[in-house]
Amino acid sequence: MFVILAVILVGASLMVVAQRNPVYSALFLILAFLGLAGQFVLLQAQIIAVLQVLVYAGAIMVLFLFVVMLLNVRDRQAPEAKLRWQKLFGLILTIILFGLVAVTVAGEVRLGPQGEFTPQRLAELGNAQVFGKLLFTDFLFLFEATSVLLLVAMIGAMVLARRRPLGASSPPPAASSRAD
């Protein structure tokens, strides 16, 4: 199962990068997220898997698809002369980065002290119950902080995406000439 899901995950991620059409990229990204959710189930983090599907695949990607379709950008054959070496360097740097990370990680991993939530105990208590209890006790402050972050992001997105600046009753000429 691990291997199948890993192949889905890696293959779909590669396709996201390789596809010319952003809509296909978004679709493959959804597939990659679903593969990742499968991995989470294997790791006995069911609540995380469901959150992954619900939030990433269900909400964030719909937003992506929405914008991609709204803009309906055709990937034009952009003049690449300006940055001819960028692709090559990018690839080399990526491979170096991957090599560094993989060497660090692939060897013997020495784990720190083990916590109290063994898989048996988790299965007994229920993953979601433990998750919720911790979130609303030990991590309550962080939880509230993220809610403020989300509020700020929401307001920010609305301000940015407005067609005319705040307070202006009639659209300024520059904006209206481009309005579609």
Partner: peptide
Amino acid sequence: LHSMSGQIFFFFVMTVAAAEVAVGLAIILT
């Protein structure tokens, strides 16, 4: 590690990603 901290962290990463996507897409739109 038999610890829930990683999963809690996932939750926060996800929240930040959601916020980031909302703002980022708005910027792209403008």
